[in-house]
Write a protein that binds this DNA or RNA. Structure first.
Length: 227
DNA sequence: CTCCCGATAT
DNA sequence: ATATCAGGAG
């Protein structure tokens, strides 16, 4: 809520104590052209299901998560069912997503905490969400941005991290520091678009190992740091 | 920093 | 063969 704190400095020289890069608008326009309806590709039918799916999405493609949750959400309906599930059986259900023991543990612990502290309802603030086991800022921002349309912050996953550094939007390396830079740089009403759009850009164009700079719509805006 | 973990692109 | 992939906890 304090993120919009603008220093209305009387000094005409520095009207804003603002970030490294000058104008974000051209970048936002290009991104919008390339990914007009950028959104997360996880399948869900409730905020709770999106929360579970996002936990499962760690180090795993959306496609594989969707393949698993298609049957998973038929078998377990709501936090009570996950909390009471047999752990070994749940681990097997989650196996194709990788890190399956850790994820089973996180999903069950998260579900129990959700029931105990929030009556089974997914909270609407990032401060409350990140108290849940297995939930940090990235997961919390995905849920708040996507399920509730709340611009709680900017999603910083491995794609946003890499692309932001290459574009020179940040000099930092830790996700939290990068998110802080992006929140200053990008207007708040663009946050829920910016995250998913940059994720798609990183997934399909500005790839980790062999970026496709020749066909990149942001090519002329990019200093190509670390490529 | 390491560990959790399997599938896929290179 | 191995780096990487919609991360987070200890």
């Amino acid at each position: 809520m304090m993120s919009g704190a603008i220093s209305s400095s009387a000094c005409p020289e520095h009207t804003a104590t603002m970030p490294p890069r000058t104008n974000i608008q051209p970048l936002l326009e290009r991104l919008r052209q390339a990914h007009p309806d950028a959104r997360y590709e996880l399948n869900w039918s409730s905020p709770y299901e999106l929360l579970v799916a996002t936990i499962l999405a760690a180090q795993c493609t959306d496609e594989r998560v969707n393949r698993v949750t298609a049957t998973l959400f038929q078998k377990y309906r709501g936090p009570q069912a996950f909390a009471e599930a047999n752990t070994t059986e749940l681990e097997e259900d989650l196996r194709p997503t990788g890190f399956y023991k850790q994820k089973a543990k996180s999903v069950q612990a998260m579900s129990r905490e959700l029931l105990a502290k929030f009556g089974g309802e997914v909270p609407h603030t990032i401060e409350q969400l990140i108290t849940l086991p297995g939930v940090a800022r990235k997961t919390a921002n995905v849920v708040l941005n996507t399920a509730f349309n709340i611009p709680s912050g900017v999603i910083v996953d491995t794609h946003v991290l890499r692309v932001s550094q290459r574009l020179g939007l940040t000099k930092h390396e830790k996700p939290e520091e990068i998110e802080r830079d992006l929140m200053k740089l990008v207007p708040q009403d663009q946050w829920t678009f910016f995250g998913p759009a940059v994720v798609l850009h990183g997934r399909y164009t500005c790839t980790a190992r062999k970026p496709r700079c020749e066909e990149c719509p942001l090519n002329d805006l990019c200093p190509k740091i670390g490529v």
